[in-house]
């Protein structure tokens, strides 16, 4: 990198808000970069995003284009990952499937993180009956086994990717609320919270501006570590026929339909399986690396 840029970022006396923020970010990046496994994880997650965005450019065929002359072809020059029982190119389907996986990931993040953070920090900060009610609700959700609740939920509504995501989100947020609450209970006692109280700040202001920022990093870390499980649950629902519906190239559903040929035409189930494995691993490695960098106790 250009030396003057790095100097600007590492400046001990930043001249503007933006420079201070960029500098703090750059320092974390320097620490993150020293962990090679985390960098592998980051590379995988970035690739997932790029593949999802540029899927039409990368895939040689459409995800649902059938060519019955080329049914169940092994991996070859024409079909890198082989083809399935309807002669669809598995590589193209895996590439387009990344869009579904990414969408699940994003939808879960935007629902779970805010709900978990809000419930946890409010319960932790205000305590008393607010805490009692919010945490008992959390306990109720925690009491259900995740996949069973998701199954019941999807069965009650109708099978489909949106309902699968909703079901996953519904069963995923409680641990985040607990985590945020536990952190809030520690942070609440800190002098810097007493200091804003003594400046006259309202309870909501303290929670939003002073407590939530302290809980965000652990939420991000837990989210990335959980992502593997979320992707697997989504694939599991797809596999059971309750998630994405055919002919959509969802990885779990692809494994499900390839199951019949698993002994003779292994690639039909194995290729999407490998994709799930690699992406899950990527999120896990990334989460491990982020934990080391974002841990508030590091400073």
């Amino acid at each position: 990198m250009n030396a003057s840029w790095s100097q600007w970022l590492l400046d001990e006396a930043p001249a503007s808000r933006a420079q201070a923020r960029a500098g703090a970010f750059y320092r974390s990046w320097l620490a993150f970069r020293r962990n090679p496994l985390a960098m592998v994880g980051l590379a995988i997650v970035v690739s997932l995003v790029l593949v999802a965005i540029f899927a039409p450019l990368i895939a040689p065929f459409g995800p649902t284009v059938q060519d019955l002359d080329f049914r169940l072809q092994p991996p070859s020059h024409r079909h890198w990952f082989g083809s399935d029982e309807l002669g669809r190119d598995i590589f193209s389907r895996v590439v387009f499937g990344s869009r579904i996986t990414l969408m699940i990931v994003l939808l879960v993040i935007v629902t779970v993180a805010p709900i978990g953070l809000a419930v946890g920090t409010l319960a932790g900060y205000f305590g008393g009956w607010v805490d009692a009610i919010l945490m008992r609700v959390t306990d109720v959700f925690l009491a259900f086994p995740r996949l069973i609740l998701a199954l019941a939920f999807v069965a009650a509504l109708k099978p489909g990717i949106e309902n699968a995501v909703l079901a996953i989100a519904l069963t995923t947020w409680p641990p985040y609320a607990r985590l945020a609450r536990a952190e809030t209970l520690v942070v609440r006692k800190a002098d810097y919270i007493a200091a804003v109280q003594a400046q006259g700040a309202s309870g909501m202001r303290i929670v939003l501006r002073h407590i939530v920022p302290m809980c965000i990093s652990s939420t991000i870390v837990r989210m990335t570590l959980d992502m593997a499980g979320i992707i697997l649950t989504a694939a599991g629902l797809g596999f059971l026929g309750l998630g994405a519906q055919p002919p959509s190239p969802e990885w779990g559903a692809m494994i499900s339909s390839g199951r019949r040929f698993v002994l003779d035409q292994w690639w039909v189930a194995a290729m999407p399986g490998i994709a799930i494995f690699v992406v899950s691993l990527g999120f896990n490695l990334l989460g491990d690396g982020l934990r080391d960098v974002l841990d508030p106790k590091r400073e």
Partner: peptide, 28 residues
């Protein structure tokens, strides 16, 4: 207004000095 004993604990670790000083201005 109050000043606390421990200068290591009374400033928010994730906020710049600028935001620490802007906060009371915003509150009031």
């Amino acid at each position: 207004q109050m000043v606390f004993q421990d200068p290591y604990g009374s400033l928010h670790p994730r906020q710049t000095i600028d935001s620490a000083l802007a906060e009371p201005l915003a509150i009031h």
